[in-house]
Nucleic acid binder design. Structure first.
Length: 388
DNA sequence: GTCCATGATTACCA
DNA sequence: TGGTAATCATGGAC
């Protein structure tokens, strides 16, 4: 069965504008005739169908050039045939839509959206991702010494956010413009060829899907930029900062005054961390955590043990400093007529490493010698080894 | 750019 | 679980 015959069959049962129905085919009576000339009408319909089928195979310009468009539009059979063609096309379109619509949400897109939202790039601006920056910094173990880095991070994140939104706006604008253009074209063409509103809608959806994929690329690039930014600014390893001079002095004082047992307890570590962090409020240092104190002592023990000679001068220096501090304390005590007899520093500690014990014992002698040749009394120590 | 100092990380051990 | 040793990676002086 050829196309024309199929369409003619499809016309069966369709009432065209309330005209009479004959033999399953609704046909309008020819103007000025009684409608008995069936063969003539069939020929008429055949002609118009042929013209329509031909014109759909041609470009609009080509069709217009041949003045067919106007002729067809003015043909008395055009509205009826046109609506039938629309109906057929609608049925075809439905079967295509059934396979294409109702796509599940793309999990990759969802991940990207969630990440952009969490980083403060998309969604409402909430301080440019400072929460994310703070969370990452806290995870890195330095909770409050990141104000400068945070401001840099926020500035960069704000730039990313701005670029993202600008690009997104451009894409949306381009999408809208293109959609409008295509819709206008289709509406224009719908006067000539059978294009239903649903088909236009389907085309719009296709366009939106295409632009969505472009948007996804934008989101992916933005996420990558944020990840790079995070690793640059917030990665703990990259963010290593030397401790302040004051903090290093505090730690060294403790280390050299506890040389025979340089293993501060948790309480001592906390106290040291607190003492070191106080310098922050004076604006001269960085906050130091208990974990960092542990790291520092770990490194110090290893490096001291590896090269005692190198650290000898430093040890003497801190021994002298400790002695001075202790002398002041003792002087104050004497003034109060409270005669507390100082205990021997570092007494009663168990060494964890025999080799280290020997080295430290030698050094301890040096320290004590320095203390007493300098005329300073030994410092007072608490039971846990802390200086009073 | 090189070199050294140093804070952080990791694997391993007791 | 805390300490050691090796190593990485960065800061800073030169």
């Amino acid at each position: 069965m050829d196309e024309q015959a199929r369409i003619l069959q499809a016309l069966g049962g369709v009432n065209l504008a309330g005209h009479s129905v004959q033999g399953g085919m609704a046909l309008p009576p020819p103007h000025g005739h009684d409608g008995s000339d069936v063969d003539g009408r069939k020929q008429d319909i055949g002609d118009i169908l042929h013209q329509i089928m031909t014109i759909t195979d041609q470009s609009l310009d080509e069709a217009q050039a041949k003045h067919r468009k106007h002729g067809l539009n003015c043909h008395r059979m055009k509205p009826a045939l046109f609506s039938v063609l629309c109906e057929i096309k609608e049925k075809t379109g439905l079967s295509i839509r059934g396979a294409q619509e109702e796509d599940p949400p793309d999990p990759q897109l969802m991940r990207l959206d969630n990440m952009l939202l969490a980083e403060g790039v998309s969604g409402p601006e909430k301080g440019g991702g400072s929460a994310a920056a703070a969370a990452a910094a806290a995870a890195a173990g330095s909770p409050t010494d990141n104000s400068i880095e945070h401001s840099d991070y926020r500035a960069k994140l704000s730039q990313i956010r701005q670029i993202y939104h600008t690009e997104l706006e451009k894409y949306e604008q381009a999408c809208n413009e293109f959609t409008t253009h295509v819709m206008n074209l289709l509406r224009e063409q719908s006067r000539t060829r059978p294009i239903s509103p649903k088909e236009i809608e389907r085309m719009v959806n296709i366009i939106h899907r295409k632009f969505s994929s472009i948007q996804m690329q934008l989101k992916q690039s933005t996420c990558e930029a944020v990840m790079i930014l995070r690793s640059r600014f917030l990665d703990a390893r990259r963010k290593r900062r030397n401790f302040s001079k004051q903090a290093t002095e505090i730690l060294n004082e403790y280390f050299y005054s506890h040389l025979s047992n340089p293993y501060p307890s948790e309480e001592a570590k906390e106290e040291l961390a607190k003492k070191c962090s106080i310098t922050v409020s004076q604006g001269v240092g960085t906050t130091i955590t208990v974990a960092q104190v542990s790291n520092w002592f770990g490194n110090k023990r290893i490096r001291y043990k590896k090269n005692i000679g190198k650290f000898q001068e430093e040890a003497n220096l801190y021994a002298a400093k400790t002695a001075v501090t202790a002398a002041h304390a003792v002087a104050a005590a004497v003034q109060n007529s409270q005669t507390n007899s100082p205990t021997t520093p570092n007494s009663g500690f168990q060494m964890k490493d025999e080799e280290f014990q020997l080295d430290s014992a030698e050094n301890k002698n040096t320290l004590l010698t320095n203390m007493f040749t300098g005329g300073y009394p030994a410092p007072c120590y608490q039971s846990d080894g802390r200086i009073q």
